[in-house]
Write a protein that binds this DNA or RNA. Sequence first.
DNA 1: GTACATGCAAATATTTTGCAAAGAC
DNA 2: GTCTTTGCAAAATATTTGCATGTAC
Lengths: 123, 123
Amino acid sequence: MRMTHQRQMILDVLKKDYQPKSADMILHLIHDPKLNLSTVYRTLDAFFNVGILSKSTIDNINYYYVTDHKHHHYMVCTQCKKMFPIDCHLDEIAKDVAEKHEFKITHHDMTIYGICKECQLKM
Amino acid sequence: MRMTHQRQMILDVLKKDYQPKSADMILHLIHDPKLNLSTVYRTLDAFFNVGILSKSTIDNINYYYVTDHKHHHYMVCTQCKKMFPIDCHLDEIAKDVAEKHEFKITHHDMTIYGICKECQLKM
DNA sequence: GTACATGCAAATATTTTGCAAAGAC
DNA sequence: GTCTTTGCAAAATATTTGCATGTAC
């Protein structure tokens, strides 16, 4: 897997604040006109397959975020779409079930949906 | 919320085996030519909003399944797409985090991806 | 130099929507 | 009878793909 300028830019943006981002968000955050949306999609998919990125789908849009060692997930506000990181406590649970079914886990995704403090006040 | 013939058919199909199903799968399982795909989508969305159904997204396709009291999630095989139900152990974890952030949880989703026993043998 | 990555444009596929007709309560 | 739901067809939108060109190693 080659590290190109485009791939580096995409990774940099995702590492800037570790907030999950869609392909479109990434394209707009990187102003470079040399970057194409297809490339963003292809890069995100490639990184995801290698394990560098994790993915969550919200309202049929895929959001990607850096998979760090302290593996975590997100709690997302369905109003303002802001995401709050939460630690992952799933590894033991998942491992047990997987062993029972002889299922080879590649990755997992967890998302909690709700309304954040700010949006609750606005209602 | 009115219980129409279409809605009843959709719910019946989902309750038949409790396996997650996409709108398209549901349409094909119900042979009735009087059922339209739009209706399936609208019904699934309506049921989801009321809480009767839960949803998981795999490869950009939404799968819906009946939300039962013994709340559970799925472990999905990325090869054959078969899904294995697993119990949910998340409620306490989620509650703690939510309280800390004053986040009002509406629902959550968890999916474990991997390769099932059968597909491993085929490789 | 070669194999992989990108840009561009066009295609895919799922999901959504507007509106008139039908149906539930 | 009223208000919700449906069917149909058309639109919206995220994502994918083919192919020629460019670029990392």
